[in-house]
Design a binder for these strands. Structure first.
Lengths: 215, 215
DNA sequence: TAACGATGTAACTAGTTAGTGCGTTAACCG
DNA sequence: CGGTTAACGCACTAACTAGTTACATCGTTA
């Protein structure tokens, strides 16, 4: 007696299967970290077979590396689409702060994946050859932004674009990644929509006051 | 033939054994996260037996909870020792920023433990009864600091002490927890002593510009 | 000193987990 | 249509891992 007559076999499609695996792996790795994730669970979530994971990605770690690289490439691509160089410096800076916050908020897996990778001291990213040039453009973009602002007399000079980038990321990232312990420690729900808006406002103040000349 | 004649049996000391276990567990959990850590490894590191871990702490998760609670109690106690209420507002604020940075730098396990706990959505901290009042005092201390600064005309009014606290933590914490991926992404060694000093300076600027009235 | 609880050890168990061997089937091409 | 290749799936294994059982020994006190 045949077993799976109700579900007719899926048409064979290597690319689609790989995508399903990557999507499932991203979810699983983001939820449980690298060592907390189970390859069997990823296979099931992907509606695929564990054998396929090893066929396409070689190992659990290589799968993690691919997921991580994809995540970095995605945020870097999204940043490039902002086209900050076409805007007035102050507007561009505000847009970058808002974008960074919103991206983290809408892509919580990104934060968790990066945390996992740092727990492993960037072991996988070190091996990667796919993310080299991507960040360079972001730093250049911010450096250019700062230059233009200084020349037009709205920003103060001497600000390091890398430090600024890190700070813009930090004030959003930290709030969101530590929202669970933070909500307990501060006895307030940091994930509440109003709390989120207040945080974004506060972050905008922080960056504007840091960079701008006139208050 | 007896095996362990070279190492005479350790005198029995429950408290000392628990301390050794806690110390080893902190190291192991900080290095590998909760699911990446192995109870056998902790027992070995502690120069104790696995049976003792279960005898004193019940389970791997309860051991983690104890380690985490101890870590929070330690930083909160250190903050209280700062005695910020005895200093001029500006000096006190600068001292708090410096302290927070230095504490994270010298206690990297704290950051990793908190990250692990947030991966688990604060599951263990939720159960804890030992860390309730500790944070309240920190927030009160900062709130008082802000009030005094506003009254003496050096700080601008309306700053939320919780948001400020979070920001002070964020700009240090993020830099250090993401130093591994950051060093690759930005193609510079973020852990370099000079880089660390530059970051502290930048963070001081960020907070002072955020809080103070006159630049 | 006998008894008893606290401290310690080693060996074991039941369940889990990353990774594989091998057979099957669909798609494509001559 | 025959045959080759790539996609897929089952069932297995070797190693690992949290937690336990059974037992030994120390130290204190009745």
């Amino acid at each position: 007696m045949p077993k799976n007559q109700d579900t007719s076999p899926r048409p064979r499609d290597a690319e689609a299967t790989q995508k399903r695996i990557l999507k499932a792996a991203k979810k699983e790795f983001a939820k449980n970290g690298l060592s907390g994730s189970r390859v069997d669970e990823i296979a099931e979530r992907a509606d695929a077979n564990k054998r396929m994971i090893y066929h396409y990605f070689g190992s659990k770690e290589q799968l993690f590396q691919t997921v991580l690289e994809d995540a970095y490439l995605d945020i870097r691509a999204a940043e490039q689409k902002l086209a900050l160089d076409e805007m007035a410096p102050k507007d561009a800076l505000e847009k970058l702060v808002r974008f960074t916050w919103t991206y983290y908020l809408k892509n919580p897996e990104f934060i968790t994946l990066v945390n996992s990778e740092n727990l492993h001291r960037a072991k996988h990213l070190k091996k990667s050859t796919r993310i080299d040039s991507a960040t360079r453009r972001l730093v250049d973009m911010v450096a250019d932004l700062l230059d233009r602002g200084v020349k037009s007399g709205v920003f103060r000079p001497g600000i390091d674009p890398v430090q600024l980038n890190i700070t813009i990321a930090a004030i959003g990232y930290y709030y969101l990644t530590n929202q669970y312990t933070g909500s307990i420690i501060y006895k307030t729900n940091l994930a509440d929509p109003q709390a989120l808006n207040e945080r974004l406002d506060f972050n905008l103040q922080t960056i504007m006051r840091l960079v701008c000349l006139a208050p």
